[in-house]
Structures are given as structure tokens and as C-alpha cells.
């Protein structure tokens, strides 16, 4: 404990090493656990990916199957996240500003996709949205197949990323002072103008953060999507399922390269989310 209170001066590398060696045991447990559980696996993946070699890496990463898998994964995730962006904001609004029966129950139930194991979600969505399921049978007369198509993948992604926007927008909305809205209203703004110019701007960072979180969750999702999709290449095969299939064929370089692409994208998304959150703090 005493080391840390010494004034920290340059020579970062050495000072850092000394800090770790003399660190209190809580630090050592934390760093040790992180090293074994997280850093080691990430490093293993980085070295295995670099061992593939740049030419082969590029060839695997841009193979037609992989490209179509990214396309399905990212477009569908984006659509699902956008859907939740719109409806999530609406639900957050309703939960904060309106009063209706069972509100508490509905508020609590929004977190269900976080708590429900993804294979259960996939199972029930595949049943409900299949052609003779409760909801799938409603779409069937219009010639729309949901389960075992890309739409089904979208439904599963919407399900698992549902809570994000609601949970990021809710606190911002609850803390928002209503004086400004009243002022806008008194000054003759229409409800739409009030929403567009007064309520929406401070909400936007929270909405975008929620959308980005949902997107990043949907991109990585495996359990629910693998069950509801037919997993046919070029149709509804998503990148995580492709990794799994490559592994099943003992194609380790193939799995590693596509895994690397997904990892890079989730890191980019993470940085984006952090920037969005920094932007949101502007309004504090």
C-alpha cells in the first residue's frame, strides 16, 4: 500500500514492474486472473492468426463464404439494432413518462433477454416464428418465411439486443428536467417541435450508445441464431456459426482468421461505444 503513495515519476516501465512486484495481494490476484483467463487466450489467438501469414490470412478472410457471412451478420445486426433503437426509445419513454397497469412488471421483464440462456431463446423463437408457429403462421399467408431464413436471424438478434437501448435511454430520460419542455411548450412549440429540438438532442448519445451495444451483442451472438437459422452459406450463415463450422472440420487457421476479424470488429465497436459515452457525458 505504501508504494503507491510515493510520487510517481517517469521511467514508466521499471516503475510499473516494481509496482506490480510490490503490489498488494488484491492487485496480484486481479492481474494474475486476468493474465490467465483473458490475456493468455487473446495472445494465443493473435499469435495463431499471425502464424497464418498475411497472404493466406487475406485469402481466408475474404473468401466468398466468409464475405457473405459478414454481410449477413453485419447487415442483419444493424437492422435489428436500428429496430431496437426506434422501439427501445419508445419503450423507454413509455416506462418513464406514462402510467399504465403492470408497468413495474413490464419494466422488470425487459431484462429477460439478458437472463434467458440463448439456446432457450433460439428454441422458442424457432417454434413461435416457424410456419405453423403462433406468429410464423400469421406471416405465412403473405409468403413470408421467418424461421430458417435471414428474417429469423434478424428476429433472434432483435430479441437478444432488446434491453440495451431501453436501459441506456431510461436513466437519461428520467433525469431530464421537464422545465425546458415546459418552456418550449409555453413559447408555442408544437409537441413534435418540442420532441425534435428539446427532448431528442440530449437523448441521441444514449440512443446511439444503446444501438452500438446492441449491434455489438448481435454480431457476436451464436446460441439463438444458430437454432433459428438454417445455416446455409450465402443465405443465412452468420460469421460466428462459420467459425464453429470451421472448428468442427478441424480447420483451425480458417476458424482463427474469421475469429480475428470478429474480434477486431468488436474492439472497434467497443472504442466507438466508449467515444459515444464520452459524448453523452457532455450533457451531465
Amino acid at each position: 500500500m505504501t508504494i503507491s503513495s510515493l510520487p510517481e515519476k517517469p521511467r514508466l516501465g521499471k516503475a510499473f514492474l516494481r509496482q506490480i512486484i510490490h503490489a498488494p495481494w488484491t492487485w496480484r490476484i486481479m492481474l494474475g486472473y486476468l493474465a490467465v483467463m483473458l490475456i493468455l487466450p487473446v495472445l494465443a489467438m493473435l499469435t495463431k492468426a499471425s502464424a497464418v501469414g498475411p497472404a493466406k490470412f487475406w485469402q481466408i478472410a475474404t473468401s466468398p463464404t466468409a464475405l457473405s457471412a459478414y454481410d449477413v451478420t453485419f447487415t442483419t445486426s444493424l437492422i435489428a439494432a436500428a429496430f431496437n433503437g426506434v422501439f427501445g426509445t419508445l419503450i423507454a419513454w413509455v416506462l418513464v413518462r406514462e402510467d399504465f397497469p403492470l408497468k413495474r412488471f413490464i419494466d422488470a421483464s425487459v431484462d429477460l433477454p439478458f437472463a434467458l440462456p440463448t439456446s432457450v431463446a433460439g428454441l422458442t423463437l424457432a417454434t413461435v416464428y416457424s410456419q405453423n408457429g403462433w406468429l410464423g403462421s400469421l406471416a405465412a399467408p403473405f409468403g413470408i418465411k421467418i424461421a430458417f431464413t435471414r428474417i429469423g436471424v434478424g428476429v433472434a438478434m432483435t430479441f437478444i439486443s432488446l434491453p440495451f437501448v431501453i436501459r441506456t435511454v431510461q436513466p437519461v430520460l428520467a433525469e431530464m428536467e421537464q422545465d425546458i419542455e415546459e418552456a418550449a411548450w409555453c413559447l408555442g412549440a408544437s409537441p413534435w417541435q418540442t420532441f425534435r429540438h428539446v427532448i431528442f438532442p440530449p437523448l441521441l448519445p444514449a440512443i446511439l450508445t444503446g444501438v452500438a451495444l446492441g449491434f455489438s451483442r448481435a454480431v457476436g451472438e451464436y446460441g439463438s441464431t444458430v437454432i433459428i437459422a438454417s445455416n446455409t452459406p450465402f443465405r443465412d450463415l452468420i460469421a460466428p456459426v462459420l467459425i464453429f463450422q470451421r472448428l468442427e472440420q478441424y480447420d483451425y487457421p480458417g476458424a482463427t482468421v474469421i475469429g480475428m476479424v470478429l474480434l477486431i470488429i468488436s474492439l472497434v465497436a467497443l472504442i466507438g461505444i466508449n467515444l459515444l459515452q464520452a459524448w453523452a457525458r457532455r450533457y451531465d
Binding site: 486476468l34 483473458l38 493468455l40 487466450p41 487473446v42 494465443a44 489467438m45 495463431k48 455489438s216 454480431v219 457476436g220 451472438e221 451464436y222 446460441g223 460466428p240 456459426v241 467459425i243 464453429f244 472448428l247 483451425y252 476458424a255 482463427t256 475469429g259 470478429l262 474480434l263 468488436s266 474492439l267 465497436a269 467497443l270 466508449n274
Partner: peptide
């Protein structure tokens, strides 16, 4: 803090793959 949060942003399949690459037959 972001490092500790990292497992939430990594796809579960990629997480599994990493473990295979450390402890699996072809792994470290």
C-alpha cells in the same frame, strides 16, 4: 476497466475458440 469488460464484447464463439487455441490439441 475496459479490459475487465472485454469478455462482454467478445463473441462467445471467439471466446471458445481462444480457449481451444490455448489448451486444445493444436494449441499452446
Amino acid at each position: 476497466l475496459s479490459i475487465i469488460d472485454l469478455p462482454f464484447s467478445i463473441s462467445p464463439v471467439v471466446a471458445g475458440l481462444m480457449i481451444v487455441l490455448v489448451y486444445g490439441q493444436q494449441g499452446w
